[in-house]
């Protein structure tokens, strides 16, 4: 049944691609040069993959996203747990973080460029900042939202504070933590592209800028498709992990 549903959800995409192909081939839109048919994009995708250009740029971006997202998420979860569980830490840290939280990740770009220079650290730091705050606040919300009676019950059964935290609080906060991770996994790809477009010579963002300067719309579309697929893949990956960890016990677990 799930497979049938997945096939059905592909139908609109295939129809869209078909319309795209027909509309451009029939020259129903002006400027064929600026709007290549889908088949040309696919040819270019194959060409870029075969000569290794796309893979090199993709791997550069992927590595940065993985490092930045892992570091930002781990830091966000750790600080979030401390803030959510210890009211004293929350009272001190919340006013500070709530000042930084509203700043868009790309708003940090100029100052990070000055601090870290133009190099590998810069896009990683941008992804770090992008993932840290939302994961932090989702973790805090998850932990603070836990019914306090669960904590009381665990304590009354003989659990130390550490046991309460690791066996009750964190597992019950997982759905919220994963919401943060899922949202930011997609967002990480969006900001890395922006950082690479501005300052870095490698990565999908850099390839996009090169394609733009060469007026290669087909390559631009290839990059955008890679970006869209990666955003979706990362989001689905975290949704899958969340489902695996929590669907057995959650009342309305969805996947």
């Amino acid at each position: 049944m799930k497979k049938i549903k997945a096939v059905y959800s592909l139908v609109p995409v295939l129809v869209f691609l078909l319309i795209w192909e027909i509309v451009v081939r029939l020259e129903l839109v002006p400027g064929h040069f600026f709007f290549p048919p889908f088949s040309v994009v696919i040819q270019e995708f194959y060409h870029l993959t075969a000569n290794g250009v796309l893979i090199d740029h993709f791997l550069s971006s992927l590595l940065r996203v993985l490092i930045g997202l892992s570091a930002g998420s781990i830091a966000g979860i750790v600080v979030g747990i401390l803030m959510g569980y210890e009211e004293k830490i929350h009272k001190v840290a919340h006013p500070i973080f709530s000042l930084f939280y509203p700043i868009p990740a790309l708003g940090w770009l100029p100052i990070l460029m000055l601090w870290f220079g133009i190099g590998e650290i810069l896009p990683i730091m941008i992804v770090f900042v992008c993932s840290f705050f939302p994961v932090l606040y989702n973790t805090v919300t998850g932990i603070k939202g836990i019914n306090k009676n669960f904590v009381k019950a665990a304590r009354s059964l003989g659990a130390s504070e550490w046991k309460v935290l690791t066996t009750i609080v964190i597992p019950l906060a997982l759905p919220n933590i994963f919401t943060g991770l899922r949202l930011e996994a997609g967002m990480a790809w969006r900001v890395i592209i922006a950082a690479e477009m501005v300052a870095i010579p490698t990565g999908i963002g850099a390839l996009l800028m090169k394609a733009e300067s060469l007026l290669r719309v087909d390559i631009i579309i290839v990059c955008l498709i890679v970006l869209a697929v990666m955003c979706l893949t990362f989001e689905r990956f975290f949704l899958y992990i969340e489902h695996k960890l929590t669907h057995k016990w959650r009342q309305n677990a969805q996947y």
Binding site: N149, F150, K152, S156, I168, L172
Partner: peptide, 22 residues
Amino acid sequence: FPVYKRKVGYLFQSLVLFPHLN
């Protein structure tokens, strides 16, 4: 004594079975 050192069995009114454990 912290709660866990008092070692009392407590059945709460709302039962509070841990939802993530079978």
